[in-house]
């Protein structure tokens, strides 16, 4: 029996690798996706309110719902690929869209929640686009920015100066972490409480270990809905932050950009009909359209 199991698992491993190798070389244009009846969508793992797996194993979040609408619009089934975030966007695009990763997992047809460079709208491509020339960036659906959630009973000032004396939580190794550590001549350095994940950052606020949290606006709005503490979402001046807001969109492979064109049209419809606003409101998030010139 044992011998048989060993043999069959070896064969399975070989088959799995074979599939991975085959998919490696293939881009799927729109026609192939429609014909196959499904679309593979990459989303970030553990990334509420945009994409996560709930306790019952269901995929949830704004990106899941939007991807569902996009799949529906071309009449195919959405297949979700939850992927951990790598060290930066370039790594995620490489693994999920154009080259595949070191362990040969399948690539996706489309990746959600891809930040887009301002340069994309100018004559010259932006830095991110230049570095990822096998990726087609498109379909902006939200303008992201940073914000703070505070307990109004503890915090009532109008600037970050109040955090010389109060603790503020951040997820480690994010712009809020870098900003608060270095801003104002390092005066807040000892007030920053770093957590390894956003969920733990949220927990430290819930437990009263910090008086506030700085994160993306969508994240703090999601927190406001899910913590039992009294909350207020604010945006203090951030003089040193270079990139105050950035559009979120989709990425497809450059040789299947017709998928992007189809979804661009669909997203315009979803915005016009109010459906995008409605999806985000389901999670407590304020929809912010991307300005036309951005």
């Amino acid at each position: 029996m044992r011998v048989l199991t060993a043999v069959s698992s070896l064969r399975l491993a070989a088959v799995a690798l074979g599939v991975a190798v085959a998919s490696f070389a293939q881009a799927r244009p729109l026609d192939d996706i429609v014909k196959s009846g499904y679309i593979d969508v990459a989303v970030y793992d553990d990334f509420a309110p945009f994409s996560w797996k709930d306790a019952d194993g269901r995929y949830r979040g704004i990106d899941i719902d939007i991807a569902g609408e996009l799949a529906k619009s071309i009449g195919v089934e959405m297949r979700v690929m939850m992927r951990q975030a790598g060290e930066d966007l370039d790594g995620d695009l490489r693994a999920n869209i154009w080259r595949g990763d070191l362990v040969g997992r399948k690539m996706a047809d489309v990746m959600m929640h891809v930040p887009q460079d301002r340069g994309l709208q100018e004559m010259q491509p932006g830095e991110v686009e230049k570095r990822n020339d096998l990726v087609h960036f498109c379909c902006k659906y939200h303008l992201q920015t940073f914000a703070e959630i505070v307990d109004p009973d503890e915090i009532d000032g109008k600037t970050f100066a109040q955090f010389v004396y109060k603790k503020i939580g951040v997820e480690v190794d994010t712009v809020p972490d870098f900003f608060l550590t270095s801003a104002f001549g390092g005066q807040l350095m000892n007030s920053v409480v770093r957590s390894v994940t956003f969920a733990k950052t949220m927990q430290s606020f819930e437990e009263g270990k910090v008086a506030a949290v700085m994160a993306t606006k969508a994240q703090v709005e999601w927190m406001a809905r899910n913590v039992t503490r009294k909350t207020k979402v604010v945006q203090y001046p951030t003089p040193d932050i270079i990139r105050k807001d950035w559009p979120i969109g989709l990425a497809v492979r450059t040789d299947s950009r017709d998928v992007g064109y189809a979804f661009e049209l669909e997203l315009e419809k979803l915005a016009a009909s109010g459906r995008l606003k409605e999806i985000m409101a389901d999670y407590g998030v304020t929809y912010t359209p991307v300005p036309v010139n951005d």
């Binding site: 891809v114 930040p115 460079d117 994010t174 993306t216």
Partner: peptide, 14 residues
């Protein structure tokens, strides 16, 4: 230093 880099959907100082 590279201001235009993104990590898990957010602007990042790479």
């Amino acid at each position: 230093n590279e201001p235009i880099t993104y990590k898990k959907g957010a602007a990042y100082l790479g």
